[in-house]
Design a protein around this nucleic acid. Structure first.
Length: 822
DNA sequence: CAGTGAGCGAGCTTCCGCTTGACTT
């Protein structure tokens, strides 16, 4: 008979695995996710006719669809095995429609773990396509199109072209904007944390320090002084010792979101980097699917993990657990992210792959291990001269390490060197102590501590927040983070901290003395900051579209999608209920709202008395002195045009002061002469720069300040850059000055007539002759030209799919803008 | 690439979720 069954799954790696489980009578193919989408032009929705969707086969899927069509006509039975969730059901339905599958020859099967047993069970229990579930997916898709394609054009008209808004991205930006404002408005208050160190004997009769903290914070230096005065003649004695057992349980195995968080914290990976590496591991068969919202482990996984733990750590370390997924809107089509083979403690691969795999292995294993057992001791120490106060010493002893042997989850609490920190205990065992012991005082230290402002989001902590709100899906977290950065709503940046003074009062050897110390506060690394445009767009959307910007919007429409899936609601009626009022608001906003530039009046210019404004202009944020000299109809009102200046890179519309704004008009500034030509400093599109003999030199970020830089430093920068350029050049040719062999970020390359060419691997770049180079450039020229053409043709699809890598995204962006100019 | 900030107004931009590649200066 030969092959007579075709199984279609979503992912090619999955297809490969499943093919091994099934016999020769089955071919397994993948459709690579959705094969159709709403047509790109206009809305792709017939609004007059119950929102009937118009679908088209995505261009990059045409080949796959043709292949599946051919195969499906040749077999006796087609098994649609897309994922068991809303999107998966829709994929199955689209396949059935597009491939024109005969109902009698088609089966729908689902499994949510890739084990032989699960697959065979699925085959034994086929079902039909769930049309209600498909409807709920169509409602989801259509709602997102309506929201995105009606809101974005308003932004083009009222704020800036090419901007975007959507159910997910706009709320993500809102979270960042609101957090930023909380931080800006935050006023740190300070209290004094008082700790005493007593000298006690340990088990071996050695004198050690016992640290104890005052049970309350003191409000001022005055209060501290009064307190310490009282301590001068006090006796300190142990009033109470309480020992309590406690336990810690391991975290559940990884989902996409928790993997992104931990890889960020422990390995320093960005969200998209984590996904790229995880994809590699998945394709190599090392881990299960990496886009999942489930913490479920298959029985097979639990059993093999159990065996591994028994073998490696002993039976008392093993403890089987079943975790329940708690996150909102989880669809649980897959297992948690885990190693395919639990007995593989490590793998071969790049160092990134190894590290991520190890993290996944440890987390999975730990989730099936025993609780850690601790013993916490609290010692209360009386102060004879102060009835109401006491010092508390804490100790913690690990009685049994359990899962801590392999894995400790990190937390997002990255404390400022200075800000409020947690309870400092005496790590480990406390020395032997008895009630009524008198403790000799060594010293008391009162340190001023500031309250901590809310933390800025990292990529991963934003994903965590979105997941909590039920916004977005595992497959979209990384692209969403990229999109809001690409639209310039958000930048990922480091910030230098600023110094801050704090007071310390110390009582030692019978004397009290006070000193002022300095700490750095507010330093940030790799955090997300909303930009001016992000804030302006957000404020506009919040003002006119509160409903959609509501943090619960997704959750509430999800409830309705569920009702559609349960057959309790008709999908187009739900859409209609949403769309009618929404569209009215869109029309009204388009007509009535003002152009939004985020304009703020800073005050008056002391020299001229003219008003000073800050706003978003055609080329980004800017300051302006004086009112526009043209009226509403373009008539000229006065001879005097306003003066303009661009904002510096770290300046924001929301926070810039009048003084800082006025400073910007002192640019460009002459620094003096060098090699017979003037050196000037100015602020340009790419930040502050030095200009000398029509060459440009960037100022060093966080080191140089354009307002204070002096000639000597400028010359330093000029010579530095010249030397770097010299090193960059590997070889030049007198006969052909337009051709150079240069050293770039990705190794050596040839630059010829401003185009760049790759040098074939395993060739020594310095050994190349001019002829060799020209050979490379001429053979490469044809290739690279067609490449550019391709890129332009697939520009739209490239933009949506290439969101993982910021470098490619930037390249695409540059291409489009430069084309526009022509 | 290192200015610009007004208007003329063609033609373009945009969403969220499923999946991988091909390739970067």
């Amino acid at each position: 008979m030969g092959t007579s069954n075709l199984v279609i799954v979503e992912s090619p790696a999955k297809a490969k695995t499943i093919e091994k489980f099934l016999g020769k009578d089955f071919i397994v193919k993948s459709c690579m996710g959705h094969i159709r989408d709403l047509v790109k032009k206009n809305f792709g929705i017939d609004k007059e006719n119950n929102y009937q969707p118009q679908y088209e086969i995505s261009p990059e899927k045409k080949k796959i669809v043709a292949e599946l069509k051919k195969l499906s006509s040749e077999v006796d039975m087609v098994w649609l095995a897309s994922d068991e969730d809303r999107e998966g059901e829709a994929i199955a339905w689209h396949l059935a429609e597009v491939l024109k599958l005969n109902e009698k020859k088609t089966q729908r099967i689902v499994f949510h773990e890739i084990t032989k047993e699960a697959i065979l069970n699925a085959i034994a229990k086929p079902r039909t396509i769930d049309n209600h579930l498909v409807d709920s997916q169509q409602a989801r898709r259509i709602l997102d199109r309506l929201v995105g394609f009606e809101l974005s054009p308003i932004l083009w008209r009222k704020v800036r072209p090419s901007l975007s808004a959507g159910r997910v991205q706009s709320v993500a930006v809102r979270l960042l904007v609101e957090r930023e404002r909380e931080i800006l408005n935050f006023k740190a208050t300070s209290t004094f944390k008082v700790s005493a160190i007593f000298s006690v004997k340990d088990k071996n009769n050695k004198i050690v320090g016992l640290k104890a903290e005052l049970s309350r914070r003191l409000k001022s230096v005055k209060e501290v002084m009064a307190f310490l005065e009282k301590c001068k003649d006090a006796q300190f004695s142990i009033k109470d010792i309480v020992t309590k057992p406690s336990r810690k349980s391991p975290a559940p195995p990884f989902t996409t979101s928790t993997l992104q968080q931990e890889a960020g914290r422990k390995l320093g990976f960005s969200v998209s980097q984590t996904m790229v590496v995880a994809q590699k591991l998945y394709e190599a068969g090392k881990i299960t699917y990496m886009r999942t919202d489930s913490v479920h482990l298959s029985d097979l996984a639990i059993n093999t993990a159990h065996a591994q733990i028994n073998k490696t750590f002993g039976a008392n370390y093993a403890h089987t657990r079943h975790f329940k997924t708690k996150s909102k809107g989880a669809q649980e089509a897959h297992e948690a992210i885990r190693p395919t083979y639990m007995d593989q403690h490590e793998i071969t691969g790049t160092s990134q792959e190894k590290r991520l795999y190890e993290l996944i292995w440890k987390r999975t294993i730990a989730s099936q291990m025993s609780d850690a057992l601790l013993e916490k001791t609290t010692v209360t120490i009386d102060i004879s001269t102060l009835k109401d106060d006491s010092f508390i010493a804490r100790g913690e002893v690990l009685k049994f390490d359990g899962f801590l042997k392999v894995y400790i989850e990190s937390s997002d609490l990255e404390l400022d060197s200075s800000d409020e920190d947690g309870e400092e205990g005496n790590k480990g065992l406390l020395p032997p102590l008895n009630i009524n012991d008198i403790l000799p005082l060594n010293k008391i230290e009162a340190i001023e501590r500031y309250s901590q402002r809310p933390a800025r989001y990292t990529e991963a902590s934003l994903v965590k927040k979105l997941e909590e709100l039920g916004i977005g899906r595992p497959s979209t977290y990384a692209p969403t983070i990229s999109t809001i950065q690409q639209r310039d709503y958000v930048v990922k940046e480091d910030r230098e901290g600023t110094p801050r003074n704090y007071e310390v009062v110390i009582f030692e050897n019978g004397k009290i003395h006070q000193e002022t110390r300095t700490e750095i506060t507010g330093a940030e690394k790799g955090k997300l900051f909303p930009t001016d445009i992000g804030m302006v767009v957000n404020d506009f959307l919040v003002k006119y579209f509160v409903d959609i910007m509501d943090y619960n919007f997704t959750a509430s429409v999800e409830e309705e999608f569920d009702e559609i899936a349960d057959g309790k609601k008709i999908w187009y009626k739900m859409i209609d209920n949403f769309y009618r009022p929404f569209h009215l608001k869109v029309v009204e906003t388009t007509e009535k709202s003002q152009r939004n530039t985020g304009e703020r009046k800073l005050g008056e210019d002391p020299k001229t008395g003219k008003p000073v404004y800050v706003r978003i202009g055609r080329y980004g944020p800017m300051v302006q002195i004086g009112d526009s000299n043209t009226g509403a109809n373009g008539e000229i009102l006065s001879d005097e045009k306003p003066k303009y200046a661009r904002l510096g890179k770290d300046q924001r519309i929301e926070t810039i002061s009048l003084e800082e704004a006025l400073d910007l008009f002192n640019m460009p500034r002459d620094l003096g002469e060098f090699e017979g030509s003037t050196v000037t400093v100015a602020i340009g599109r790419f930040g502050p720069y030095i200009k000398h003999k029509s060459a440009f030199y960037s100022l060093k970020k966080n080191i140089d300040d354009p307002f204070t830089i002096i000639l000597e430093r400028a010359i330093e920068l000029i010579t530095e850059k010249r030397e770097a350029d010299l090193k960059k050049t590997i070889k030049e040719f007198k006969e052909e000055p337009e051709l150079k062999i240069l050293n770039g970020r990705w190794g050596p390359y040839i630059c010829y007539k401003k185009e760049n060419y790759k040098i074939p691997k395993n060739t020594d770049p310095s050994s190349l002759s001019l002829e060799d180079c020209l050979k490379i450039t001429s053979s490469d020229a044809a290739k690279s030209k067609s490449k550019i053409r391709n890129r332009i043709a697939s520009k739209t699809s490239a933009k949506t799919t290439k969101t993982n890598s910021t470098t490619t995204a930037k390249a695409t962006k540059k291409k489009t803008t430069s084309r526009k100019k022509k």
